[in-house]
Design a protein around this nucleic acid. Structure first.
Lengths: 218, 218
DNA sequence: ACCTGAACACCGTTCAAGT
DNA sequence: ACCTGAACACCGTTCAAGT
């Protein structure tokens, strides 16, 4: 018996196994042992199915900030969680963008991140700048990581799925260099946030003088 | 008369006009007024053609650092240039990753960036962390920008192609909010680099204590 | 209610010709 | 030398049936 859930589950498995490029409704149907058209009773199109997958992969309940954390610890925790979420199904990463109907803005983890920035003492516009810096870093790092790690495309790169403890012992996790470098470079970004915070809430906005020397591209 | 160049030029035009999703060898051939198979005399496969396009789009001569710039000005200039390069052909951005044979590492702009970081007083490993932070920020920001700007997919989003002067007057450029926010958040990252530089060359590496409180994703 | 085969308008690419 | 049509093994999706 077919169902939306059974289809979505198998679709995610197929995506993890074979990659986005070779995914097709016909292959999915073959795996489920049904005719292609049966799928269309449950999802009106491939796009709708992909939207569901995006929701399932990236809509996972985000980590709750632990009480008593500094804003920095909170941001590191959220960033690490987010990266693990993205890497859990590496082949689904492009779906985050194409089917971006995922409500990123309202999600608790995102709000927790904004709150952490406010706790750091940033004004509203400063927090927005910091938020974009961190968000772009996250997306960019994982994108580059996915594309660089073990060849250019496709192959299922099983993520380090083991749970790492909620408390301090993540040193072994840091042995893997991708993980370590992710955190190390994140520190650079967070140092920038620290500097913003230290400059106080009345820091003047960025002016043209700060961008002197920008040059045309070609 | 067909040629590698004529095919590549038309392919880029087709890509800019209609997006990556709907690009096909058959459509390209129709646009050139030839049979599909003629294309295969010049490019052995669609993948090879795409590699050529990636080289053409992202291999453009990068901006030279102006003499007398501070490292910060240099980095801002390079980042802005790189973003404009990526946005010049937004539909080609995915090619940068899929056909990443593009020699990013050896390119002058990249080396200039590394040099700017050394000028800031960073040690070799510090420069590597800072480099990854900036690089991930660039890729992430442009990726998010591309996916958010004017709907989810496809449509040709003509970039602001006007040349802006090499000297200070880039204030009008900053009127567009994507541009302004790109620079503003880049400042946060660069503030982090400044902090690294101020801490001196002997700053201890990131330790597990800095990542206390990281939590599992689900 | 639930599933499906045939058909349509597409793909990328091979191969054996055409000029 | 340069180009090509027919053919193969694929796509997503519509539509009119089958059970």
């Amino acid at each position: 018996m077919l169902s939306r859930e059974r289809i979505a589950t198998m679709a995610l498995a197929l995506l993890d196994d074979e990659g986005l490029e070779t995914f097709s409704m016909r292959r999915l149907a073959r795996r489920l042992g049904v005719g292609v058209m049966s799928l269309y009773r449950y999802y009106p199109s491939k796009d709708e199915l992909f939207s569901e997958l995006a929701r399932q992969v990236f809509g996972a309940a985000p980590a709750e900030p632990a009480p008593g954390e500094t804003w920095r610890e909170c941001l590191v925790g959220l960033a690490v969680s987010f990266r693990r979420l993205l890497l859990a199904h590496p082949n689904a990463l492009p779906l985050l963008f194409k089917h971006g109907g995922v409500p990123l803005r309202g999600r608790p983890a995102i709000e927790a991140m904004r709150q952490a920035l406010k706790d750091a003492g940033l004004s509203e516009p400063e927090a927005a700048d910091a938020w974009r810096a961190i968000g772009a870093y996250l997306v960019g790092y994982v994108t580059v990581e996915r594309m660089t790690r073990s060849g250019a495309s496709g192959g299922a790169t099983p993520p380090p799925e083991r749970d790492f403890p909620a408390l301090a012992r993540i040193a072994p996790y840091l042995k893997d260099s991708w993980d370590a470098q992710f955190v190390a470079s994140l520190m650079v970004v967070l140092d920038g946030v620290t500097r913003l915070a230290e400059a106080g809430p009345c820091r003047p906005p960025v002016t043209a003088s700060g961008t002197k020397g920008a040059r045309s591209a070609r």
